[in-house]
């Protein structure tokens, strides 16, 4: 069943289109930076970007920071929102369930497919950014940490890999919300937009001083904590909190998705 879901995912042209768009945005940024040599002033723009001109090896981290606020969660929400609701809308859900495919099994297979997509997306962004970064910019200098000291190549490779995993894990929270909504509605669009709406709301509240009391529990609060991986030494506090918080979101919404889907009347 998992193989079938992966085949469905990767045979859909839309999947590749959204991956291409995800890769295109950082590529565009890299292109403009390389041709104009105008770096954002330090402290403005996406994280790391100001340092990229002097060291292209930082570009994978910068690329993740570029797609993280909107593009990446949007792509994940669309794929996860599509999972059950898309089958319901196409009418194929009833044929899968009468095949018979157990509802829990189907949900698990969908989850694995969404995770595969998320990982593909994050890895593709990081890998393409690595290629661009080393081709367009000077990458011979040792990687500077955001704390000013230098990182060895091994260190920076490990930290970039960890950043990829951390961003992927953050996206799994989005996926869980969209998957839950996907079991509630028969409209893939509504499920995806619902998840995105939650993220936008969370982003607004994170930036709001008055909402300080709820800030630590907002899903997007620790997303950018992967930046801390490039400090020397690594600042683990927010990373750990972010990982745990996302874990709670994933657990709660996946349980809700399961409870709803296994008891639901399929009328589509």
């Amino acid at each position: 069943m998992i193989a079938v879901e992966l085949a469905k995912l990767y045979r859909r042209p839309r999947t590749w289109l959204s991956l291409a768009l995800l890769v295109a945005l950082p590529a565009m940024v890299a292109f403009f930076l390389a041709t104009t040599d105008i770096a954002p002033r330090p402290g403005t723009g996406p994280a790391f970007l100001s340092a990229v001109l002097s060291n292209g090896a930082l570009f994978p981290a910068a690329a993740l920071a570029i797609v993280l606020p909107l593009f990446l969660p949007l792509a994940v929400a669309v794929v996860a929102g599509e999972s059950i609701a898309g089958e319901a809308q196409d009418g194929t859900l009833r044929y899968l369930l009468t095949r018979p495919v157990g509802r829990t099994r189907l949900l698990l297979a969908k989850l694995v497919a969404v995770m595969a997509f998320t990982l593909t997306a994050v890895v593709l962004v990081a890998a393409s950014a690595h290629v661009l970064g080393t081709q367009l910019f000077d990458a011979s200098a040792p990687l500077p940490s955001t704390s000013g000291t230098s990182l060895t190549t091994t260190q920076s490779t490990w930290r970039t890999a960890l950043a990829v995993l951390y961003v992927g894990w953050s996206m799994l929270g989005v996926a869980a919300v969209a998957l839950f909504l996907s079991t509630v509605t028969d409209s893939p669009l509504a499920a995806a937009l619902g998840a995105v709406a939650l993220l936008v709301a969370s982003t607004v509240l994170v930036g709001l001083e008055a909402a300080q009391s709820v800030r630590p529990y907002l899903p997007t609060r620790y997303w950018l904590a992967f930046v801390d991986l490039f400090r020397d030494p690594v600042l683990w506090r927010d990373l750990v909190r972010g990982t745990l918080l996302q874990g709670v979101y994933v657990a709660v919404f996946l349980t809700a998705a399961w409870a709803n889907f296994t008891t639901k009347d399929v009328a589509s």
Partner: peptide
């Protein structure tokens, strides 16, 4: 049991054979 419930449904961007193959591989 084999069933056709209301309208038939398949994945429109795939061929008929591929649709059957995927459905057959989905279950026991």
């Amino acid at each position: 049991v084999g069933a056709v419930v209301e309208q038939p449904a398949s994945y429109g961007h795939l061929s008929g054979r591929t649709n059957l193959r995927l459905l057959d591989a989905s279950g026991p």
